[in-house]
Nucleic acid binder design. Structure first.
Lengths: 363, 363
DNA sequence: CGTCAGCACTCACTAGAGTGGAGTGCCAGA
DNA sequence: TCTGGCACTCCACTCTAGTGAGTGCTGACG
């Protein structure tokens, strides 16, 4: 099980004076905590401001609505709740969600139906890795009703394991590169008129000898001449193709599934638009997920990540590791009032299974 | 230039009685046509019902608003316009848009800025085909402010040009298949303990000999035994991998760009959601575009295509052909009040350039 | 001192009435 | 056949209660 949060500064426990003491962090007394949890849970379910009346029956809250009101007022003073307007119920703030997430006890596991779905999915997963990652994003979206993001492993450091030149006819040939982690890159290049199969074979062999064992981005720009000018021309084209592939290779691949769920999550159409716009920018999304992981978080709520258009969203990230080595990331994007327990459970189990599956396929 | 529509039955020209003659098809007198065109144009721009007053200054309409009103009433009787309610302006029906599209004269070409953008894009396009198609969808979305769909060429009939087994270590190897049109397929397979590089080489050569020149889906399930049991095992795995790749290969690849534009096009969030849901179903989208092309249309408006959730959308499709052979499709999806001239112009020019580009790269 | 019932108060939401204006249909006259 | 004029329609907007969910406060109680 992962630690769900990084912030738990455990402040001095006993500083309760006779008057209001702003409880700066996670040290709410147990009833306030129960009330806050109840409000968050209710709000996640209904998306309506929660009144004191709806909370009195929650577990851990066996007091009257008047007492709940006074506690809720305190929670508002401390920034865990807000009122949309006077005489309305309360809505959790980002800080309120943060407390809720940090104090989710044992992360509830997935429901049996979901477990079954995951098992079935990975039992039947086969074929190309990219296709599997794509489908995994769909699975996650189905499970959680969130938009799911799956980032594939980076191939930046993978060395070249094979280079092949395949003639396609019409003076064209395809440079096919296989990397050590199983990734394949390709590019078509034009051939001189007099390049026949034997030329391709020789040029391919020489380029392969030149590039094997080296990361794609670091393949040398020049390859020793062969003595045959046609071969040299082909080799030059091939190496330049390798180079241009190496350039484009830094970025990890991103697969986004279930982006339509964002339209169900908000009723303001502009919010939907701005979120979708972000999702279309692969680079932004990938580095966003990376940033969140780097700060040690598993859940980024509202403005905790810096991306302003996603201020009303929360993101759950989970690294996918293969034999202890990080090999990808999965992320779930939903409104701040998303179902955190479900999202965390789904991300955990799918991340785990995906890691195993990638391990079988690449190592 | 393409013919923009298929329906033009050219009915008997001279059947104008003294009273109302329901004008069943495209034979509106020139003033009514001008009025209809003006209403559509105005409505595309403002998304507001158009009143008779806003139309009197349009070209081809030099009559008073009262006359325009009577013509608009006739157009409504004939099903080209509707009123949202009495004493409101008029809105085009699907039939109205259809007339408008069918009577777009010389399809206006792209504005200089757009032309420039397209040129620049294709000048700098390089690298893997899939990446280029993906980016093309982004380009189209940018140009037209619609959601763009790009369907890559089908590889169903492409024959195998090369099969290679690349060892990845840890008893794994990658089966890499190159098809004659430059597509690459791959799958990892597990190896028996005693399979070294020479075994891979031999098995690879034998499988290649078995599969070369045959479409992936038709590769025979059994390959003649080699005499070496290890090689035979590897060959069996490889052939089964080819098979599973062949199965998944029927579907063309779809690239969708600018789906966030749909959120800008509608103000009902449910509409957005249902449209996005459709867009996530690759199979549905691909066959939808195919269906539209097959019926000979270039533009499908509202319910003309059968997909009910897209009833408030219009689709512009354009085949991409390489040397006269169809090699893909591009599609633009927008609200029925989308900018048809712009969309048609952009689809035409991008489709043309894309065809050229694909021609350079694969033939 | 914490808890609780009671009470006055606030304020979004809804329904209904009134109003202005954009737009229509119809008609008589050129 | 077209046009100006006119009566009419009905949406969109504003204003006005009325309603109800929910609050903060207070004084009493164990």
């Amino acid at each position: 099980m992962h630690e769900l949060s990084l912030v738990s500064p455990m402040p001095t426990v006993d500083d309760r004076r006779h008057e209001h003491t702003p409880q700066t962090d996670a040290d709410l007394d147990s009833r306030k905590a129960a009330i806050l949890t109840a409000v968050v849970t209710e709000y996640i379910g209904t998306a309506q401001p929660v009144g004191s009346q709806h909370v009195v029956d929650a577990p851990g809250v066996s007091v009257s609505s008047a007492t709940v009101r006074s506690d809720m007022a305190a929670l508002e003073r401390d920034g865990f709740l807000v009122q949309p307007h006077t005489s309305a119920g309360r809505i959790p703030t980002d800080k309120g969600y943060r407390f809720f997430v940090d104090h989710l006890g044992a992360t509830s596991s997935l429901d049996p139906g979901g477990r079954q779905q995951v098992r079935q999915f990975f039992d039947h997963a086969h074929g190309e890795i990219e296709l599997m990652l794509e489908r995994t994003s769909g699975l996650l979206a189905d499970l959680t009703d969130c938009t799911a993001m799956v980032v594939g492993p980076s191939h930046e450091s993978a060395v070249v394991r094979s280079v092949q030149l395949v003639g396609l006819g019409h003076r064209l040939c395809l440079v096919v590169v296989v990397l050590a982690d199983g990734a394949v890159r390709k590019q078509t290049v034009e051939l001189p008129d007099d390049a026949d199969d034997s030329v391709l074979a020789e040029a391919g062999a020489r380029v392969a000898a030149h590039a094997l064992g080296v990361p794609l981005a670091q393949v040398g720009a020049t390859v020793p001449p062969s003595g045959n000018p046609t071969v040299d021309i082909v080799m030059a084209s091939a190496v330049s193709a390798l180079h241009s592939l190496g350039e484009a290779d830094g970025a990890e691949q991103l697969f986004v599934g279930g982006s339509s769920r964002m339209a169900a999550a908000f009723d303001a159409v502009d919010t939907v638009r701005s979120v979708l716009t972000i999702l279309e920018q692969q680079l932004v999304v990938v580095s966003l997920l990376r940033d969140i992981l780097d700060t040690g978080l598993t859940v980024a709520i509202g403005t905790e990540h810096g991306v302003e258009p996603l201020a009303s969203c929360a993101i759950v990230v989970m690294p996918v590791s293969v034999d202890g080595v990080e090999a990808g990331t999965i992320g779930l994007l939903g409104p701040t009032r998303m179902n955190y327990p479900l999202a965390l459970a789904a991300a955990t189990v799918v991340g785990h299974r995906l890691g195993e599956r990638l391990g079988e396929a690449t190592r």
